[in-house]
Nucleic acid binder design. Sequence first.
DNA 1: TTGAACCGATTTAATTTTGAACCAATTACC
DNA 2: GGTAATTGGTTCAAAATTAAATCGGTTCAA
Lengths: 135, 135
Amino acid sequence: MSKIDPAKIWSLNYRLLMSVISSVASDVTALGLETKELFVLTEVEEHPYPAELAATLSMPKPTVTVYVKRLEAAGFVRREIDAADLRRHRLHLTPAGRKVMQRGIALLSEAFGSRLGRLSAAQQAELRTLLEKLS
Amino acid sequence: MSKIDPAKIWSLNYRLLMSVISSVASDVTALGLETKELFVLTEVEEHPYPAELAATLSMPKPTVTVYVKRLEAAGFVRREIDAADLRRHRLHLTPAGRKVMQRGIALLSEAFGSRLGRLSAAQQAELRTLLEKLS
DNA sequence: TTGAACCGATTTAATTTTGAACCAATTACC
DNA sequence: GGTAATTGGTTCAAAATTAAATCGGTTCAA
C-alpha cells in the first residue's frame, strides 16, 4: 500500500467540492441568492451572530456584513440588536428565508447525494464519521 | 442510526476545507503566490493546458488566464504554443515553479495532515478510497 | 475549397470580495 | 470610578474574480 499523501486526499476533496458547487450554482442563484449566501443562510440558526458566521465559515467579517445585508434586503433574515450586548446583531431566519434555505439545501443534497450514491449506506456513514473526526 | 443527510456531510466537508485553506493562506502567500495559484500550479503537470485547468479546478477560464499570467511573470511556469494546435498554450513547470509548488504542498500537507493525524492509517486510506469513488 | 460551428484563450467592463481603518460597546484591571 | 485592551460590526478603497464579448485557429459537412 502506498504511503498516505495528505495533499492527494486534499486535492481530491477540493476538486469534489468545487465541482459540486459549480454544478448547483445556477440553480441556486435562480432561487434568488448566491451560493455563498446560501452557506451563510444554512448556518444562521446554529450561529446567529455575524462574527460567529465569519468564524465557522472561515470568511472575512466584511464579507459576512455584505451577505447579511443582502439576505436582509431579500427578506430572508431579520436582524435585531442583542439586548445583552449592544454590539451584537442577532440574526433570525424569516419564513421566506427558511423556505429558500430548504430549497437550496435540497439542490445541494441532490447534487452531492448523486455522488454519495456511489457509496453504500455504510460507506456514507463511515465518510460522515471520518469527516466529523477531522472537523 | 440516523438517516444519511448529504447536506450535513457537505457542510462538514466544506467547513473543513475552508478552515484548512485559511490556516495556510498566509504561509502560502509568503512563498510568493496566492492559494488558488498554488492549486493551479499543482495541477499544471497533469493538466498542462489552461482550458483543462479551468475544467478540473472548476474555475472560469478568465480566472485561469489571470493566474497563469501571474505564475508566468513570477517565473513559475513557462508557456509555449502547441505546435499541433496553435490555439493551445502548453504550460511547463519551471524548476523554480516546482520548488515553490513542493513547498506549498508541504504547507498544505502539514496543515491538512495534522487533521488527518486524528485518523488511523487505515482510516486515512479508507477516506482516500471513499473520496476517489466520489470524484 | 468554403463557410458555419466550435474551441482555446484573452480582453474588457462590471461585480464580488476583502484588508485596513474605524466606531461603539464591553471587559479587564488598576 | 477610570482607562487600556478587546470585541462586534461597518465603511471605504483597493484588489480579486468573472460574465460577456471577442479573436484566431480548428473541425466538419457539403
